[in-house]
């Protein structure tokens, strides 16, 4: 039996007390791919300044749910979403809403590091340029530097900002993608298994970064590593076959899960 050692859990307990107000709320969300129902009615809140982890076996719908939060599912043909998702009380599936602005507010970091085929500088400057966030070159330089600093990458790349972002190592690329996401000053950051393609050292850096970022952003992270969920998150949500089985403080989920399915999963009986 493989339980998460208690000393790992609840490291973030003190900050989790802060989370109180819901940043995003999902109510009876259902997602269909053609006729297949991938998400079967989920109610979930993402609090301000919290890190929430989505765990569950492959194909349980956690990535799909994550993608409904900034409407990335729009890019998939035959994908249909029902129910409501709100950001600061505003329905994000309202036809009058500007998807482009929504995605600037709810940023996303993907499973595989996907830097653009541009220089490191241009990778980070991409979002601010699109949204006109900088008033001139100096301003833009500042945004780029700040974002890279917050992503903990500045010292490693400051001498080669004009080199292609694809030339960095996997972990650096992923931090570049995080820098790119925070450069547009989002309010929520969605991370879809951000460490699954990285080695343990790069993973540790990203986790550290998530911890720091949580003071300013709400972060939702999908992960296959239960240790990671335990280390970085305030709350953990367990998904199973398109349903949300349980969501609770991370410590509780990993020590006294309410539901037997959750317990079975975290103890490694299936998944």
């Amino acid at each position: 039996m493989k339980m998460i050692s208690p000393d790992v859990i609840g490291q973030r307990k003190e900050s989790s007390e802060v989370a109180s107000k819901a940043k995003m709320s999902a109510r009876s969300v259902r997602v269909f791919y053609s006729e297949v129902e991938a998400i079967k009615g989920i109610d979930l809140d993402i609090m301000e300044n919290e890190v929430i982890a989505f765990i569950g076996p492959s194909g349980c719908g956690k990535s799909t749910f994550l993608r409904t939060l900034n409407r990335m599912n729009d890019t998939i043909e035959d994908c249909r979403v029902e129910g409501t998702v709100t950001l600061d009380g505003q329905d994000i599936y309202d036809p009058s809403l500007d998807v482009v602005m929504l995605r600037a507010q709810v940023g996303m970091v993907f499973q595989k590091p996907n830097p653009f085929p541009k220089s490191i500088y241009d990778n980070v400057a991409y979002g601010p340029k699109l949204h006109g966030l900088a008033r001139g070159r100096g301003d833009l330089d500042e945004i780029v530097e700040n974002s890279l600093r917050r992503a903990g990458l500045w010292d490693e790349v400051k001498d080669r900002l004009d080199k292609p972002g694809t030339g960095l190592s996997g972990g650096q690329q992923q931090r570049l993608c995080i820098a790119r996401a925070i450069a547009v000053s989002p309010e929520v950051i969605l991370m879809d298994e951000p460490c699954s393609a990285l080695d343990p050292i790069a993973t540790a850096k990203i986790e550290e970064l998530i911890d720091e970022l949580s003071s300013q952003y709400s972060i939702a992270i999908v992960t296959h590593s239960m240790q990671q969920a335990a280390r970085v998150s305030d709350r953990t949500a367990y998904f199973h076959l398109g349903e949300l089985i349980e969501v609770n403080n991370t410590e509780k989920v990993f020590t006294q899960p309410d539901h037997h399915l959750t317990e079975a999963y975290i103890t490694g009986r299936f998944g």
Binding site: L102, R103, F110, N114, F116, P117, G127, R180, A181
Partner: peptide, 12 residues
């Protein structure tokens, strides 16, 4: 993934 990355940053 490159398209997703760009769209995810709010590009049209």
């Amino acid at each position: 993934s490159l398209r997703d990355g760009s769209l995810g940053l709010g590009a049209t």
